[in-house]
Every structure is written in C-alpha cells, then in structure tokens.
Design a protein around this nucleic acid. Structure first.
Lengths: 161, 161
DNA sequence: ATATACCCTAGTAAAATACTAGGTTTATTG
DNA sequence: CAATAAACCTAGTATTTTACTAGGGTATAT
C-alpha cells in the first residue's frame, strides 16, 4: 500500500468519471485541462486503470472514458493498487524467511497495519463521493437542470442538452 | 497524507523503539543492521522524528533513542507526517480559489478522503502494536525471562541482564 | 474523408529517495 | 584522562520514481 501524487491523480480523475457517469464518456483532454496534468501522462495512468477493468475506453469522436463497473464497486483501494504498484512490504523481499524460517516481527506488525489500511480504503467507493450533499448542490444548476461538472472549474459554457 | 517506503521505515523503526521502551535506548546502528537501512539515512529520519518530539536522543556510549512520549500518545499518522512532508493537496496549491473564489469540487472530495485517512491512522498508536499477542509470545523466552527483541532477527547473543 | 479521441512506445527532465563520506559533540568506561 | 560509543550535522551523489515530451498508430462518428 503506497500513496503518492500519482495515486491521487488517479483517484481524482476517477471521481471525475463517476460524477459524469450518466452523461457519456469523459475525455482525457478535459481532465488534463481541468486538473493540470499532461495528457500523455493521463493516458499512461488510464492504460493501467483499463487493464484493471476500472475504466472502459470509447474510441472516436464523442468518445472518452467511462467507468468499467458501477461506482459502488470501485473502491479507492482498487484505484491506488492499479496505478501505484505495491510497495514490497519489507526489505526481506521475496524470501519471507528473514527470521530464520519465520517472518520477522516488525514485518508482521507492518503487514497488520498495511492490511488495516487496505480494508479501510476498500470500504470507500466512488458512489460515496457522488452521494456527497456538497456535490449534489454543485451539480444542479439554479434552473433545476443538471449540468456537466468540471473537476477544477464549472465549465458553464460547455454542458450538453 | 502521503505513504511511501520512507514512512514505512520510520513506522517500523518506531515500532522497534516501542518494543524496547523499558529496556533503555535503542541505537540506530542496531536498527540499521536489523532492518537493512543505511545508518546515515536513519539519522536523517530520526532528526525529523526528534524535531517532532516523537523521540529523544541519548548521547554517549550506552545511548541511543527512546520514545519522546508514551507509546499510547504516538500514532502512525504522527510518524508519517513527521517524515513524509505532506503532499500538497491538489494542483491548486497556494491559492485555494481554483474555482473562481471557491474550492474546486474534486479538491474538496480529495480533502475529505485525505482527512478520513488521517483520522484512521491517528487512531492507531504504538501501544496497539505492543499489545499484539503475537508480539508478547515472541518477546518472552521459554525460561520466562524477557529478552531483547530485534526487528529482523532475534539477536539471541545480545540481550541484557 | 476527416477529425477526434483512444492507444502505444521510447526517450528525457525533474523530483524524491536512499546512500556515502566526512565531520562535531556528548557522555560513559577503563 | 584517554579512548570509545553514540548522537548529531552537512554536503554531495547515486538511484529510483514521477511526470512529461514527442512521435506514432487505430477505431469511429460525422
């Protein structure tokens, strides 16, 4: 379990996808300009996300990415594990017999903690974020119609229907 | 909130200190050889831990480091925050007005998550680890006397009293 | 057809991680 | 009191990871 900016990029991008899940695919260039991440880097991250089945690519004009599963089935842990290749758990890498046949003590303790963290982040899914009342407030315009929410800025000039 | 090997090193080292808290200070060269981390790198990490009041250095022969507070008052979050300088929460760094005066949406969502994680790791203290039954089992020798537990290997030739 | 967007690869710049090598202080012990 | 063990400090460097750049290709809606 590792957590870096790379993981954060992936999580926030997935939040973005989840928010627009019912409005057709989201393009990476949108996310790129909204979040200030290079397009090509995003493509690399989404390649990993796609390989893990977390997103589906839709090619051609009007294409983009959409979630690969219902948002309730995509946890923060899933996303982080997909892009941040897991940190090997101690220095006693392959051979877990660092302690004369048994696993060493802090190795054991750290694994406990790591597992607790994983369980915690596995319980938080994307649907939690969509249900956020703050989000609902922003996602509904004053006239009552839904509009496309950008990640960094509300793209008021660029919503559909 | 960031989580890397650096943070893991600090946490496992602190676990080591907590386990030997009542047996006098633990030297960094012990931890270095036990966990396979360079001595000087450990010194740098412990410099940060000391600045945060998490450890106390004891100089001179027989010296080393001991906990700066009771183990129940040192959380995993404290340790990680001390060594992994916190990851700025989004690309809208200093200016939190990325969304025309307000904070942007995923910025908000990510902060929520980050805070949840912090709360979670703040609830886990070093005393949790010491209470671990597995640890107790290893820390008591067959003859009933306590012995010094190494992190990576039981240093059977090197316990006191 | 053409434009749009995914999809892929290789190389590189920048940053963080981890180490090396030298020191100085402080306190214990012979 | 001299030798030693340890913290404590600084500067430099190797390594790894992160993030980007540049160039392609492929599918598909219009």
């Amino acid at each position: 379990m590792k957590l870096s900016t790379k993981g954060r990029y992936a999580v926030t991008a997935m939040m973005d996808l989840a928010l627009h899940d019912n409005e057709g695919p989201v393009t990476l260039s949108d996310i790129s300009s909204c979040q200030g991440i290079s397009l090509s880097y995003l493509e690399q991250l989404f390649s990993l996300l796609r390989q893990s089945g977390l997103v589906q690519g839709v090619r051609g004009p009007g294409g983009g990415y959409r979630l690969g599963k219902p948002p309730g089935q995509i946890s923060v842990a899933d996303i982080i594990l997909a892009v941040d290749e897991s940190l090997d758990s101690t220095n006693c890498k392959g051979h877990l017999d660092c302690n004369k046949g048994e696993r060493c003590l802090t190795h054991h303790l750290w694994n406990d903690l790591s597992e607790q963290l994983l369980t915690f982040l596995s319980a938080i899914t994307l649907s939690e974020f969509i249900k956020n009342p703050e989000v609902k407030k922003i996602s509904v315009r004053l006239d009552g119609t839904a509009h496309r929410i950008s990640t960094m800025f509300p793209v008021t000039e660029n919503y559909n229907s």
